[in-house]
Amino acid sequence: MASSASRQLFRAATRAAAPARRGFTSSSSSVTASSRAAFRQGAAGAGRRYYSSEAPKSGSSSSLLWIGLGAVGLGGAAYYITQNGGAVEPKAFKPEFKDYQAVYNEIAKRLQEHDEYDDGSYGPVLVRLAWHASGTYDKETGTGGSNGATMRFAPESQHGANAGLINARNFLEPVKAKFPWISYSDLWILGGVCSIQEMLGPKIPYRAGRADRDFNSCTPDGRLPDAAQGADHVRNIFYRMGFNDQEIVALAGAHALGRCHTSNSGFDGPWTFSPTVLTNDYYKLLLGSKWQWRKWDGPKQYEDKETKTLMMLPADMAFIQDKTFKQTVEKYAADNDLFFKDFSAVIVKLFELGVPFSDKTETWVFKNLDE
């Protein structure tokens, strides 16, 4: 109870007391360096947007051979090898909520312990991994989605939109080794769920039961959003998955997290002043800042006129240039609780695309590490 209260106190402090940076007054959730340090030490991880690119840092990614390590979990079930009178025999193991909570806790602990990645957290790139593992879904053909973890194989691992995600996959490899019964498909999504919650985002309900597939199920390139495009492209990509306009804008709120890198996407910079905490800042900044084209040698992107430290991509600006999209942007900019409610619902929908859950599959809500 005390830990929960302290977490709520910190949540309020980070959202209400952060000063402006470089003369620009962001929303109430902009986080100072000292707050971010306290955040990392106090059992809160961080989050990351979904289709921006991550750049590897020296020493931040292991060279683990992750394809095929451990047992491949199928449909949430696996096998342990036990000793019985000197003979080795398999014993069926069906993981329960407590087992998945243990995996969640392990990921959260690693997020605390490994702060060498962008802005002090691997959380954002884990969200991006879960997003890209899910966003390949095609509702017409029933292909793609989070059921398969086919990004383990080429050519999907080499798609331009997935550049840098080897860092997220390597980060989770020790977790897979410790809990070999969990499928990569379930693990990647659980990594995204954990990161969102540990970065002070909303609770994300979770269902287990994804099964890993081989390279024959890899999806073709081009199914993920191209950040250089406008509203028509955005709609085409998300309608293919089964989302409507309101859901598209809700998903875009994850742009409050992380940053782009020239080494991966060609773009550069963060969207918000607090790229490791999920809030509705993305919408507030879209509406409240003055944006101009950045003058540089890279691809077309916007920068905020006042500080020139933030960026927006053409696909981001489409949300305020399109009248229908903008109406939802305005609602989320004015109400963080509404954003959290809708974001939680739509990210669950994204993370479950292509998964044939049975009617008996339980829905779980994990406790944060400090609860």
Rank of each mutant, 00 (worst) to 15 (best):
R240G: 06
F179R: 05
A12V: 12
Q41K: 10
P205Y: 06
A168T: 02
L74F: 09
Q101I: 05
L338K: 14
D115E: 08
T136A: 10
M241W: 01
S263W: 11
D342P: 02
M317N: 02
L74C: 08
E352R: 01
S60Y: 00
S61R: 10
T143V: 13
F179W: 04
L129A: 03
T219I: 02
S63N: 15
G75Y: 02
A78C: 07
G23T: 09
R207G: 02
L251F: 07
V88I: 09
I166N: 05
F238P: 00
F243L: 06
T136E: 11
M199G: 15
I196L: 13
F238D: 00
R128M: 02
S183N: 11
Y100W: 11
K176F: 00
S3M: 05
V125H: 01
G258I: 06
S121G: 09
S121N: 04
A345T: 11
A315Q: 14
H114K: 15
L200S: 03
G70F: 03
F97L: 07
R240W: 05
D370M: 10
E89L: 12
E140Y: 06
F238G: 00
P95G: 08
N336L: 10
A252Q: 03
I67G: 04
A43S: 12
T143Y: 08
S358L: 11
L187D: 01
S34Q: 15
A44Y: 07
D221M: 03
R235D: 04
H233G: 05
A231R: 07
R11N: 13
K341P: 06
